[in-house]
Simulated assay, not measured.
Amino acid sequence: MTSLPRPELTWKVSSRCNNGSCIAVAPLPDGGIAVRDTKQADGPILSFSRDEWSAFIGQLKRS
């Protein structure tokens, strides 16, 4: 299996992350957001458009 090139991203993790069950997020060049599991830094990366991410955060705030 050939792995695709991984973009150089600046990952951020919440300061509230202290048990290892966290996600890291990074801005993408196109304005979207990348998300990964902090326990698997070389694992899969999910990407969301700016609108998708805004809708997700908005829903979290309403919960």
Results as ranks from 00 to 15, higher is better:
Ile23Asn: 01
Thr10Ser: 13
Leu4Gln: 14
Arg62Pro: 07
Val13Pro: 08
Lys12Met: 10
Gln59Phe: 13
Ser63Ile: 10
Gly32Ile: 01
Ile57Asn: 03
Arg50Asn: 14
Ser49Gly: 15
Asp37His: 00
Arg36Ser: 08
Ile57Glu: 03
Val25Gln: 10
Ala41His: 04
Gly20Glu: 08
Leu60Ser: 01
Pro5Ile: 09
Ile33Cys: 08
Gly32Tyr: 07
Asp51Arg: 15
Leu4Thr: 14
Ser14Glu: 09
Gln40Thr: 13
Leu9Trp: 03
Met1Lys: 10
Leu28Gly: 04
Trp11His: 06
Leu4Pro: 09
Val35Asn: 02
Arg50Thr: 12
Gly58Glu: 05
Cys17Arg: 05
Pro44Ile: 02
Ser21Gln: 14
Arg6His: 12
Lys39Tyr: 05
Lys61Ser: 08
Ile45Ala: 09
Gly43Gln: 06
Met1Gly: 12
Thr38Leu: 02
Arg62Ile: 13
Ser21Ala: 13
Met1Cys: 09
Ser15Gly: 07
Glu52Phe: 05
Gly43Ser: 03
Arg16Glu: 06
Met1Phe: 11
Asp37Met: 03
Asn18Met: 09
Ser54Glu: 11
Gly20Cys: 09
Arg62Tyr: 08
Leu46Gln: 03
Ser47Phe: 01
Ile33Trp: 06
Trp53His: 02
Phe48Ile: 02
Ser63Cys: 04
Ser49Ile: 06
Ser14Ala: 09
Phe56Glu: 07
Ile23Phe: 04
Pro7Arg: 04
Glu8Asn: 10
Ile23Tyr: 02
Lys12Val: 09
Pro29Gln: 11
Trp11Ser: 07
Arg50His: 15
Cys22Ser: 09
Thr38Val: 15
Met1Ile: 07
Thr38Cys: 07
Gln40Arg: 15
Ile57Lys: 10
Thr2Met: 12
Arg50Ile: 05
Gly32Ser: 03
Ser15Val: 05
Ala55Cys: 02
Asp42Glu: 14
Gly58Tyr: 04
Arg6Cys: 12
Cys17Phe: 02
Cys22Thr: 06
Ile23Lys: 00
Lys61Glu: 08
Lys61Asp: 05
Pro7Gly: 12
Gly31Trp: 01
Met1Arg: 10
Asp30Gly: 08
Leu4Ala: 15
Ala55Asn: 07
Gly20Ile: 06
Ala41Tyr: 02
Arg62Val: 13
Pro7Cys: 00
Thr2Phe: 07
Val25Cys: 06
Phe48Pro: 00
Val13Phe: 10
Gly58Ala: 11
Leu28Trp: 02
Arg36His: 06
Val13Leu: 08
Lys12His: 11
Ala55Val: 02
Cys22Pro: 08
Asn19Trp: 12
Glu52Arg: 12
Asp51Gly: 12
Ile33Tyr: 05
Ser14Tyr: 06
Ile33Thr: 15
Trp11Leu: 06
Ser3Pro: 00
Arg62Thr: 15
Glu8Ala: 14
Gly32Thr: 01
Pro5Trp: 05
Leu60Thr: 04
Ser3Lys: 13
Ala41Pro: 12
Arg36Ala: 05
Arg16Val: 04
Ala41Phe: 04
Leu46Trp: 08
Pro5Glu: 13
Trp53Asn: 01
Phe56His: 10
Arg50Gly: 14
Asn18Thr: 13
Cys22Val: 08
Ile45Thr: 14
Ile57Val: 15
Asn18Ser: 11
Thr10Asn: 11
Asp37Ala: 03
Ala26Trp: 02
Leu9Ala: 03
Asp37Arg: 01
Trp11Ile: 05
